[in-house]
């Protein structure tokens, strides 16, 4: 059974100004364990809405998805227990320290006592957070914040990681730390859904890539399959070709 199975998933928003707006239009795909699944698309293509649907923050208008065997409509709390969701904005509590944030999110995932403490210590060690673990988050650099946000996402050791632009705005060494971690998680058998605008990163990390445009899935495949279908070599060219942007 795939870690993620998406079936004809759609989301329609009703807006007073724009009227009915189909943000995600009947998309279907699967992602397996030990796989990094890339989600590419221009701004407003429906990537974030898709990720929010998978994280059960939004309810689909039609269609469904199962994550780790749990249905996003019928079992949203079980789904949330199986995923780690990194939002594009990081969303860290500015007045708390990284250690406090990890402790609280551990508690929200039902962890407590010695298990929570050792897991928080482990995350702090893994992401090199020790030197600023006791500093208020609003005093940290973007890189430090993103390390904290990833540590929070992975804290409860979920089988599925949903990462929305995890290296956005980071310097090369910090981005490398996060990329290395993502690869380690793949090796550990995790399923990782990765949304990014960085083509080089997607090409380097992803086993398969889905290109989304106007809420529709244009194509899903490995780099070789995308190259064969479009006749282009570089991902940037493939991406523009699939979206009819020359």
């Amino acid at each position: 059974m795939p870690a993620i199975s998406v079936e004809r998933l759609s989301k329609v928003f009703h807006d007073k100004k724009r009227g009915e707006f189909r943000a995600v239009d009947s998309i279907s795909f699967e992602a397996g364990r030990g796989e990094i699944f890339g989600l590419l698309g221009p701004n407003g293509a429906g990537k974030t809405t898709t990720l929010r649907l998978l994280a059960t923050l939004l309810k689909p208008t039609s269609g469904t998805a199962t994550l780790n065997g749990c249905d996003i409509v019928r079992e949203p709390e079980k789904v949330r227990g199986s995923i780690g969701f990194l939002t594009g904005d990081m969303g860290l509590y500015a007045r708390l320290t990284p250690r406090e944030i990890l402790q609280f999110f551990g508690a929200f995932h039902g962890m407590n006592g010695a298990r929570l403490k050792s897991r928080v210590d482990e995350m702090i060690e893994t992401f090199g957070i020790s030197s600023f673990a006791g500093t208020r988050t609003d005093k940290l650099s973007t890189g430090m914040k993103q390390k904290t946000a990833i540590a929070r996402t992975a804290l409860h050791d979920p089988p599925i990681l949903i990462l929305d632009e995890p290296t956005s705005g980071l310097d090369v060494p910090t981005a490398r730390t996060i990329e290395t971690y993502i690869l380690e998680q793949r090796a550990a058998g995790k399923c990782i859904v990765l949304s990014t605008h960085v083509m080089e990163e997607a090409e380097y990390l992803c086993d398969r890539i889905a290109v989304i445009g106007d809420g529709k899935l244009k194509m899903v495949g490995s780099m070789e399959e995308l190259r064969a279908a479009t006749g282009k070599h570089r991902l940037r060219e493939i991406f523009l070709d699939l979206l009819d942007m020359k």
Binding site: A55, L57, E77, L86, T87, D89, G91, A94, H109
Partner: peptide
């Protein structure tokens, strides 16, 4: 502050 989304994505 965009902190609600990560909070709501926990099983709480």
């Amino acid at each position: 502050r965009k902190t609600l989304e990560p909070f709501l994505s926990t099983p709480i």
